[in-house]
Amino acid sequence: MTETTPQLSEHTKAEIDRWIKKYPQGQQRSAVLAALREVQHENQGFLTTGLMDAVAEYLDLAPIEVYEVASFYSMLETRPVGRHSISVCNNVSCMLRGGDDIIRHIENKLGIKVGESTADGRVFLKQEEECLAACCGAPMMMVDHKFYENLTTEKVDEIIDELD
């Protein structure tokens, strides 16, 4: 348990309210995914129990209902991770075009394994992603929701070095 439930920012509340309006009245629970996405974005890429409790309170849900959603979806992080999230594809097309080498290269470059974050909290090497539907540009990776295709180790270095 957290001691006190943190407050949601005004911006987050406005964003959640915008989503609530999209659903029929009394169905505000439908906005839980959008709410968690927004809260995670504002919190540098991950959720805390306190923040999930705050969402539960705002949407009038039991906290466990929010935990269920947050722990189910892979795009929601329920433990502290680095602020930039990298997912590298290693499904068939990318694998044939060297996706595994890209993953190994990033691991060596950052000194972390898949699923870990760098000590400075800058980068989170999220996971070996199954297909992200960019096969024609294989190998590919996604950095903070942005696709980068036709990767080479040099290109990866450039992209990662540019992250703040």
């Binding site: 348990m1 129990t49 039991a62 906290p63 466990i64 209902e65 935990y67 269920e68 722990s71 189910f72 979806y73 892979s74």
Partner: peptide, 18 residues
């Protein structure tokens, strides 16, 4: 609502999460 099913697939567990 105190117990719930958290996680997914093989990692799904029933519990209070916290």
């Amino acid at each position: 609502r105190e117990l719930g099913a958290t996680g997914r697939g093989e990692n799904m567990t029933i519990g209070t999460y916290v």
